[in-house]
Amino acid sequence: MKSLAIVFRHAPFGSTSGREGLDVAMLSASFEQQVSLIFTDEAVLHLLGGQTPEQAGAKDYLSALKALPLYDIETVLVCSDSLQQLGLNASELNIEAEVVGADMITKTLQAVDEVLVF
């Protein structure tokens, strides 16, 4: 079993990268890889509640975030600097996630076997 960290760094809907990253995450987890997700920069906006992706012309891939525990994806890290930059609070996050400092993310990137950035 390989450990894999998937980093999301782009805002939702403006590109398909968030959706692609989530597809890779769920696919890898279905193949029993150990997957961690890391949300940084504007990608932290994926985790806000009350979004209507279809209104922005995007497919609703955010609903699948709620299924992550069923895929055994238990580690979801959110960069606290990025939240702060955008004036967001940990309490506003729509899914179970750990708000962590940059050092924790650095540690995770070092520890896993592979890192993919979306």
């Binding site: 760094r9 940084t40 920069d41 993310i105 650095t106 990137l109 950035v117």
Partner: peptide, 12 residues
């Protein structure tokens, strides 16, 4: 693109 500055935030 913010790739470089994001990477610098997490570099060792």
């Amino acid at each position: 693109d913010s790739a470089l500055s994001t990477c610098l935030r997490y570099i060792q």
